[in-house]
């Protein structure tokens, strides 16, 4: 049973996808990159999301928003 969802995370500032994924526990895709914020997309479950948010926080990224993009068909 796949419980993963596609989440969209917005973080402050312009971030490079390669730099973001270096040492990341989960693969992040840059959906939209602007000077003021970068919108990222990832597919994971609750444990993955919590671990990723902690990872971003430890790396000093400022989280602006988090939302579910779409529920994966189970």
């Amino acid at each position: 049973m796949d419980e993963r969802l596609v989440y969209q995370i917005e973080i402050q500032g312009l971030v490079d996808e390669k730099e973001l994924n270096a040492n990341s526990p989960l693969l992040l895709k840059v959906v939209q990159a602007k000077a003021e914020s970068t919108l990222l997309s990832l597919r994971t479950d609750q444990s993955g999301l919590i671990g990723l948010l902690r990872h971003l926080h430890t790396r000093g990224y400022m989280l602006i928003s988090l939302q579910i993009e779409k529920k994966t068909v189970l």
């Binding site: 994924n21 270096a22 990341s24 526990p25 989960l26």
Partner: peptide, 11 residues
């Protein structure tokens, strides 16, 4: 682990 370990697992 209860959450994704902050290690380079994506690679």
């Amino acid at each position: 682990s209860r959450e994704e370990p902050p290690l380079s697992l994506a690679r």
